[in-house]
Write a protein that binds this DNA or RNA. Structure first.
Length: 582
DNA sequence: GCGGATCAC
DNA sequence: TATGGTGATCCGC
């Protein structure tokens, strides 16, 4: 027998290829590409760090397997399977197939915008970005060029690669027109980054007597006509530059999920993919086969989340981004490794200044300051300090931040960052404008989050991720929108398509009311209507603000948003998270 | 509350 | 000549 390669070799090669490789299905020979990337990376500090992380993960997986083998002894697996089957039945009973949720995603967004602005780029292999690519054109992707790939490696894969600089402000402009079109079809549309959004078109379809696919075709045509962008839409999962609808029945959905890689499930990234692979789960169909073992390792793997994935149940709640839900604001910068302490302090001071500007612009102050640093070896550390007051000035930020850094010196680092958390909304005090009338509405703290509830609350960020195929993600198929805080109980009756009201919610006092702002019909009471109007109005205000640019004393901001209808809690966004634990 | 890890975009 | 930035969540302590 020839000696076999160390077990981590393959996973390391794959890891080096970057986070988005597995999602992008264009390249013909991924393993050859991965080999080139690994070759080009070899010997660098980055490579050494990836190797270390890969080995740590291997060790973690081995510990998990040991635990599985010890805990499985004498266990009646058939019994565990039956218990899991009962949970699946309960989940099916709660599944809501009535909502038409659409996920739209612009095809190679940044690259498309660049081609529109400079037609010479059409058909050429190019990358957008600087030292690290933010995105790549389709031609470049065919050769393995990916986002988050360093330029020098991309050029090995594609020697004629053209590099065009990133122009965020331009992408932001185009994004705004895209989003405003989408909003016509669902005013509560939820943008997920510059180029992506979730829509609930149920109401639009019924009011305009349109079928789902028909409606989405209209949306796509309209976007193309008005912005020049081509977009993909999943009324379910989808393919590039097309649209795809999943059947709206249980069997069809589960059949579709069967061969879908678990990597496509939101919350399952490269690490969790490897962990699941180790217990024999590569696809959502495998989740069912391995349900007994998953039950045994529930704490580490999250049985409920995985069973939901198997059934293809995700969130069907689409809500707009809410300013109040911001949890942190931060700035970080990467630079060539620096060991000189006073130089580091200088950099930190610049970062503190940027953070002050961000706080100023967004209207936040924070009570906890976290310093982040990455050593020249790529190891990352954080150090935090909580204060008894809210800060946002450069002076305060730098004085606390430099103190945190000073305690760590001497260091040789390639990244420094500062982040404020435990925020206070500085715009939240004005007894002016609309807010005065809605002051006490929606003031309750967010309901307790429950990790077993499937829900997503993506928030806008800045970078494009150039996955080619839109993952079978969050909102694809309708799920039961009623987060049920109690873990599955026995004896749940099977009642398809019936949506239970959330527990503890009374429907008394609610009636059909028409919102005077957006004309939406709401099942709610007076307070609910007021809260809804607050939100409606504030969204308009925010939109105006955004177009006008920042205006010193920010006028009106919404209070905590309360959705219309029976109040929905907003459960944990990441139901599939696999816990670690030694 | 802190620090590490993971994930999405 | 050499691997990003912002924000969020969860776990163990």
């Amino acid at each position: 027998m020839a000696p076999s390669k160390p077990p981590e070799a393959d996973s390391l090669v794959k890891r080096l290829a970057g986070p988005s490789t597995n999602k992008a299905g264009l390249a013909q020979d991924q393993s050859e590409i991965n080999r080139i990337i690994a070759e080009a990376s070899k010997g660098s500090k980055f490579y050494e760090n990836e190797k270390r992380k890969d080995e740590e993960l291997t060790a973690r997986i081995n510990r998990l397997l040991e635990k599985r083998d010890s805990v499985i002894k004498g266990v009646d697996l058939a019994r565990l399977e039956k218990a899991a089957d009962q949970i699946l039945i309960d989940m099916e009973a709660r599944r809501d197939l009535t909502q038409i949720i659409v996920h739209v995603d612009a095809d190679a967004f940044y690259a498309s915008v660049e081609v529109m602005d400079n037609p010479d780029l059409k058909g050429k292999g190019f990358g957008v970005g600087g030292g690290v690519l933010t995105t790549a054109s389709y031609e470049a992707r065919k050769c393995g060029v990916r986002s988050a790939m360093p330029m020098h490696i991309a050029k090995k894969l594609y020697p004629e690669l053209i590099i065009v600089p990133c122009r965020f402000s331009r992408y932001s402009e185009v994004s705004k027109s895209l989003m405003s079109i989408l909003r016509r079809y669902d005013p509560t549309m939820n943008p997920a980054g510059f180029d992506e959004a979730y829509l609930n078109i149920t109401q639009y379809c019924s009011e305009h007597e349109l079928g789902a696919e028909e409606c989405v075709q209209v949306i796509r045509d309209e976007v193309h006509k008005e912005t020049g962008l081509t977009i993909s839409a999943g009324i379910a999962p989808n393919k590039p530059s097309g649209q795809f609808m999943l059947p709206f029945d249980r069997k069809g959905i589960v059949a579709f999920m069967k061969d879908l890689s678990v990597r496509k499930v939101p919350g399952i990234g490269r690490v969790n993919e490897r962990i699941l692979e180790a217990i024999g789960v590569k696809t959502c169909g495998d989740i069912y086969t391995q349900r007994a073992v998953i039950t045994l390792l529930d704490h580490e793997l999250g049985l409920h989340g995985l069973l939901h994935a198997h059934l293809g149940i995700g969130s069907n709640v689409v809500e707009p981004h809410i300013r109040e839900e911001r949890k942190s604001v931060g700035v970080e910068r990467t630079f060539r490794a620096v060991g000189d302490s006073s130089k580091l302090m200088e950099i930190l001071e610049n970062i503190a200044e940027s953070l002050e500007e961000d706080c100023e612009q967004t209207g936040w102050a924070g009570k906890t300051l976290t310093l982040k640093y990455k050593l020249h070896t790529y190891e990352v550390f954080t150090r935090a300090r909580s204060l008894n007051r809210y800060i946002r000035s450069k002076e305060d930020i730098f004085s606390i931040g430099s103190e945190l850094l000073r305690k760590e010196l001497p260091l040789t680092v390639r990244l420094l960052g500062l982040r404020l958390t435990h925020l206070k909304d500085l715009r939240d005090k004005g007894d002016r404008g609309i807010k005065r009338f809605f002051k006490d509405i929606g003031d309750q703290p967010p309901s307790k989050r429950n990790r077993l509830n499937d829900e997503d609350a993506p928030s806008g960020t800045l970078m494009e991720d150039d996955v080619e195929e839109i993952p079978m993600d969050q909102a694809v198929v309708s799920a039961n929108g009623t987060p049920n805080p109690s873990p599955s109980r026995e004896g749940q009756r099977f009642s398809p398509n019936v949506k239970d009201p959330p527990e503890g919610q009374q429907l008394e006092g609610r009636e059909r009311l028409i919102c005077p702002v957006c004309s939406t019909s709401l099942l709610t009471d007076n307070d609910g209507l007021n809260a809804h109007m607050d939100y409606c109005l504030s969204r308009g205000t925010i939109a105006e603000l955004a177009t006008l640019g920042s205006q010193g004393d920010g006028p009106i901001t919404p209070n905590k948003k309360v959705p219309c209808g029976p109040a929905k809690s907003r459960p944990a966004p990441n139901p599939f998270l696999l816990s670690k634990r030694k």
